[in-house]
Amino acid sequence: MPDFSPTEYAVPLFVIAVLAEMIWAKFRAPETYEAKDTLVSLAFGLGSTVAGALLGGFALALFIKTYDWRVFDFGPEWWAVWWAWPVCFVLDDLKYYWVHRAGHRIRWMWAAHVNHHSSQHYNLSTALRQTWTGSLTFGFLFAVPLVLLGFHPAMIAICGGFNLIYQFWIHTEAIKRMPRWFEAVMNTPSHHRVHHATNPRYLDRNYAGVFIIWDKLFGTFTPEVDDEPIRYGIVKQLGSFNLLWAVFHEWIGMIADIWRAPWRHKLSYLLREPGWSHDNSRDTSDMIRARWLARTGQDRLPASMSVADRNRIADAGEAA
């Protein structure tokens, strides 16, 4: 089978779409784009391409070696097994949901993924804010079960490429809602705006790549509401257009926390959720969201929340 990368063919369409959205924004929503922010997003996209070429070899070698241990064999002409392609696409999207969710719940992985959320603007150029350091988090290991099931690494890569292409168009405010049947099954601009929001009701929701059904199935779905303006970015905004700071700021912060922490807590700063601290000096997204839910009376605190975190939320509520 010839080497094929769907994202390479899609690049001209990406450029045309960004330019078209810029024209739309000029007349309809000029605040959508900010020149320096867009330049940082473009630099992210270029840098991630270079980083992928330099660091992706290890993952490829691992997948090829793992393929020798596959449970099912689709034969030497695996690319001609037509039904394997849609199955692989769906399973790869399920894999994406879980690696994406882990990217928000494990600080080591968040250090790489935070790049994608660092813009306070939401437009098609934001989709190009791809990580330079993703290979360092070993998120690619989530694809190993697909390889063991017999899907060739090239098939997985091609399906992943089409998944990435699909996600490009949902980074826009130009489209408000898709038809109801489409919104029920597929990820859309409305659903993904929620994912990029810092509003407490939206934190760490809607992890889907292509199919929003995963969020509905695993309890992480929240619909967009029309009566609350969305605030984009991260809880602690960058406050800078410095590219290198945007790329590495969370790695720097995480390493500093690990260095200063008592020995018994060092690993937690690597593997616990972003915002966690051993001295309760910071808030996690769960705590921010739970406090908002408790204050508005819309839900009870999560049963999984620790006693210490519950007490902190109660104390904050009394102080307010």
Rank of each mutant, 00 (worst) to 15 (best):
N199P: 07
K176F: 07
L203C: 01
L217D: 01
S119D: 01
A208Q: 12
R129L: 01
T220Y: 05
H191R: 06
L124W: 09
K216N: 09
L136R: 04
N163L: 09
F221H: 15
I234Y: 00
G161L: 13
W110L: 03
D215Q: 02
S190F: 06
A143H: 15
A184I: 05
Y166R: 09
I175Y: 07
H195V: 05
G233E: 02
H195N: 09
V194C: 06
Y232K: 03
V144C: 01
T137K: 07
K216Y: 07
W169G: 12
I106P: 10
Q120P: 00
E224H: 04
W169D: 09
A127E: 04
R107P: 05
N115V: 14
D215V: 03
T222D: 02
G139Y: 04
L146F: 12
P189L: 05
N199S: 04
R180I: 13
N206E: 05
D204W: 00
I175C: 10
M155D: 09
Q120W: 02
P189C: 05
L146Y: 14
F140R: 08
V235E: 10
G139D: 12
G233H: 01
F221N: 04
L128G: 02
W214A: 10
F168L: 00
S119W: 02
Q167Y: 01
L203G: 02
N163C: 09
W132N: 14
F221G: 01
I230H: 14
P223I: 07
L148P: 09
V147E: 08
H121A: 12
P200L: 01
F182H: 08
G160S: 13
H152R: 10
N199T: 01
V147G: 07
R193T: 08
D215C: 02
W108T: 01
Q130P: 01
V194R: 02
P200T: 00
T220N: 05
